[in-house]
Amino acid sequence: MDAPVLADMLDFVIAKYNYWGIAALMMIGLYAMIAKNNLVKKIIGMNIFQTAIILFFISIATKWDATIPIIIHGHGAHAHSIHAADYMNPLPHVLMLTAIVVSVATLGVALALAVGIFQRYETLEEDNILEQLKADESNLR
């Protein structure tokens, strides 16, 4: 392979590798939610899925050679003009702070429901629970 082609490919990989990692995380989370039998594993899958989206937004916000969005020497005598390229994009960080809180809240409610299910059925395996549900229904008839 020619050296320039290789360099191009390397550039391409460097420019996108974050997003591929995020795609992989999303797939893992989604798969766990659909295919796993244990309810807590499903909840963990849900959290992985949400985290992947959080990483996605944060990746959008990066700028090479930029620092965190806190203005240095903003006050007083050292005040100087501000270049937008020197600071990361603050907006996605704000949005994801919200999304993190939302995912924590969802996790809390999901765990509360799982605790309630465990109290009643004494298992967190979904197929066991479904068996018990079927048994309950046939008892009623």
């Binding site: 309810l39 899925f49 989206i53």
Partner: peptide, 18 residues
């Protein structure tokens, strides 16, 4: 069965919102 129905709703709803 409300809890288990609700937990399924949590899963579906979270995927939808995400």
């Amino acid at each position: 069965r409300a809890r288990i129905s609700s937990l399924h709703y949590v899963f579906m709803g979270t995927i939808g919102a995400s």
